[in-house]
Design a protein around this nucleic acid. Structure first.
Lengths: 229, 229
DNA sequence: GTCTATACGCCGATAGAC
DNA sequence: GTCTATCGGCGTATAGAC
């Protein structure tokens, strides 16, 4: 439990091993607890990012004050935040970057393990449903928050690495004859329209059971829309 | 088909003439008389609502100050707003209510004109694509804004009249054997996942052509997902 | 790096003249 | 109903001690 399924932090491992059910054996050569005996292995910036993730995803960026974040991170004041982040927006930017990085790495991993586009998309769907159950705040951040409202300087999702990689998967699938030969953007819209809307329904309480319960059916529906018959 | 466009104002004509190229010839065949025959078309509250719609949908609720709204509405100060609306949130609430009302009325109209669920859904898709081209701010308000972030007291969309009516259409379609016999919520997620994501892509600039150009294909894809074969 | 204390600005909101 | 003028509060951000 100490090991969350999700990594917000820049330099740690990604959430892949949690998601692929691989046994997480602690590499005892790394992370020697020599320096700190305290259980608080999480450094302050990580605590702040985790606090911000929780609050942003639950109340929204603008309904969350820096004071809220500081308190949630176990700090008395906002002052202790500034040594780590220039301002509130910088927290959100870092959060977004870390999430995209981990997502991108996971997609790389999925692509390595699956030769066909269908398998790669299936892997991504697996990941998204698992994250919805295990790390709903991250999925809320990605699927529900209106990011450009508070991160106006970020590249649009179109240009983010995960999106680009998905685009390539789709293009490969079209070229290989697995996927219908229509505009890849529309393939994306149809496929992830089904997947993400299902997840959004789950994240907003419109579906009762765990996301996992809806995965198989959603996959079939989404894949059939784009699969070459 | 004067009825198909959505109204923001409680009792006036639609805003089409305001935001499209002013081709506005008054359709003399419909809605000429009755309550308001005078040219008092643009009352202050309407101007404020239109200004708010534009700004909210383009910059978001929290990035829009009351000063912005007042200026956009042709007023010098925020003071002139308060006789009409108690506060900023009340503007958004009224806007949302008017949009839902018009949408609901349009759906009623569509249901009257189409006996089968497939025809009703087709009519709704027609409406949504038309609105995306003709009144993108309304569609941005509905599809892109995170409403519960600034309208926390509103019922969830699940319980809004348009959503309920769509739910009934789906249930009828299932009962009639037109639509696959799965959870109506999932039918909604799959069908409108495709439709709304396509529209969202259009509204965020990811699709170049007019929404109209994508309608036929999106309808086929969405309907095939839920249609009983 | 975290605290106390404080400054500053913006925005929402009110009072009152016209 | 719209204006001028102004207030109060909240949230961001800084200064400086420890």
């Amino acid at each position: 439990m100490e090991q969350e399924t999700i990594e917000i932090r820049p330099k740690d491992e990604t959430w892949d091993e949690a998601e692929t059910q691989e046994k997480t054996e602690i590499q005892d050569n790394v992370e020697p607890r020599e320096s700190v005996e305290v259980q608080k292995k999480n450094e302050a910036p990580d605590e702040i990012l985790l606090a911000a993730l929780k609050l942003f995803s639950q109340k929204g960026f603008f309904n969350t004050s820096l004071t809220d974040i500081a308190k949630q991170a176990g700090l008395k004041n906002t002052s202790a935040v500034y040594p780590h982040f220039k301002n509130k927006q910088a927290i959100a930017t870092q959060l977004y970057a870390n999430i995209l990085d981990s997502l991108s790495a996971s997609i790389d991993d999925i692509r390595c393990k699956n030769p066909k586009s269908s398998g790669q998309l299936r892997g991504i769907v697996d990941l998204l449903f698992k994250l919805t159950d295990d790390a709903p705040d991250i999925m809320r951040f990605l699927l529900i928050l209106k990011l450009d409202e508070f991160l106006p300087d970020e590249k649009s999702m179109l240009e983010s690495p995960p999106f680009i990689k998905i685009h390539k998967i789709i293009q490969s699938g079209i070229k290989a004859g697995e996927i219908r030969n229509i505009d890849p953007i529309l393939v994306n819209a149809y496929f992830f329209g089904i997947i993400n809307t299902t997840l959004r329904f789950k994240l907003t309480g419109m579906l009762e059971k765990a996301a996992d319960a809806y995965q198989g059916q959603a996959w079939i529906a989404a894949w059939n829309v784009i699969a070459k018959k």
